[in-house]
Amino acid sequence: MRPAPAGPYGPPRQMPVHWQPRRKSSAGPIIGGVLGLAAVGFVVVVLGAAAADRSGAEDAVVTSSGDGSRTVREPQRGERRPVKEQRAPLNTSLKENTVYTAGALPRTRCPGGRANVFDHRQIKAHILKTAKCMDRAWRTTLEKVGIPFEPPKWVVASGKGRGPCGDFPQANSAAPYYCPRTMSVYASTKAMANGNGESVGYARMSSWHGAFTAMMGHEYGHHVQQLTGLSQARWERSLASGSESRRLALSRRLELQANCFAGMFMRAVAASYPVPAARRDDLFAFWGSLGDHPGWPRDHGSPPNNGVWFRQGWQKQQAYQCNTWAMPAKAVS
């Protein structure tokens, strides 16, 4: 079993970047001599006054009162003029991405409840509920470093379905998948619990709903990669790659990083979910059972490395600790 399908991962949307608007020039139009010196003088006076008004408006101090009204006044002598905050452009590269400066996810309240993973209605409601927890945790973290946030969408069916990135579940796979084209997660609750084709269900390894939440945390990790430009950078690197082995290596780094992000989330909600020591060990064992078993393409990483990177996110908790792109090949094999 693999934590997510290898399936079609089309070109992600371009990442919006911060920009600074150009300041308008205060220079007036060049007045032709035909208008005469008087007209020129008049235009210069008018433009000079307008420029002064703009300068005064930029330097003015604005205060707000309790009733919502705003007062504009000139700054007093010795008073500092307000300084506009300017952010550097986002870094959307693989190794030095802005997300690595975001730190840890905030502790997030997210009670797990008692959802039965074999009951479609219950586990679907559980997935959608815990997805809101992921939204809260990741929105705070990404916006803190200037990364625009948009929540993913969720398509959770009891049986089989089809999305823009292909069938879900895919043939001989129980895994959900994230589709960059729609920024959506597609999942079959029946396949996840009971298996599909040659793939056994996740419930064979853990019937606790926390394992399913962690799996969705992995798919949410792909959404984080989409928002931060990591997916785009990986896609461009794959297109430029000259060999299949290099493309598979890039895929493994992407997938193992999503495992790490899932570990960060489960640690962020551990106190309220709750995730006691025994359940934590279950999660570690669960992730150590997933990956590229013999006969599968080597696109998700070995089972030991799948477990290592989930634990990395859980134990280290910091986004920069999930930088799989800076690691030697052995660590992401």
Rank of each mutant, 00 (worst) to 15 (best):
W138T: 14
R80L: 15
M1W: 08
N305T: 11
I123Y: 12
E143W: 02
A233S: 13
G217K: 00
G217M: 05
R22D: 10
P164Q: 05
S93V: 03
Y186M: 07
E236Y: 02
R70N: 11
G313R: 04
F149R: 08
A39Y: 11
R234Y: 06
A331F: 06
N97L: 06
K144W: 03
C133E: 05
A88D: 10
A4C: 14
A214N: 05
G217E: 03
F265N: 06
A57N: 03
Y220R: 10
G78I: 02
P16C: 01
A38G: 09
R107V: 12
L250D: 13
R2L: 04
A49S: 07
Y186V: 08
V145I: 09
Q317G: 05
M266I: 08
N305D: 12
T98W: 08
R246I: 02
F284G: 11
T141W: 07
R73S: 14
G313H: 03
R139F: 04
Q122F: 08
E74Y: 00
P89D: 07
G301I: 08
R87L: 09
E85K: 14
A39S: 04
P151Q: 01
T189E: 05
A171M: 09
M264R: 15
P3Y: 01
M327A: 15
R81G: 10
A329E: 13
N259E: 15
K316T: 12
S251I: 10
D53I: 12
P29Q: 13
D53K: 14
A52Y: 11
H223E: 09
R121C: 09
S93T: 14
G210E: 06
G229N: 06
R109Q: 11
V156Y: 01
E85W: 09
R23S: 14
R136P: 00
E219L: 08
V61K: 01
P151K: 02
V43G: 06
P169R: 00
A27L: 09
S241M: 05
G56P: 00
Q86E: 11
P328T: 05
V269N: 02
V200G: 12
Y202F: 14
A104F: 03
S333Y: 07
G217F: 02
W208I: 05
A270M: 00
V308K: 13
L283Q: 06
R267E: 10
L90V: 10
G242E: 06
N305M: 13
L105R: 03
Q232C: 00
P274W: 03
K132I: 01
Q122T: 10
G36H: 07
A270R: 10
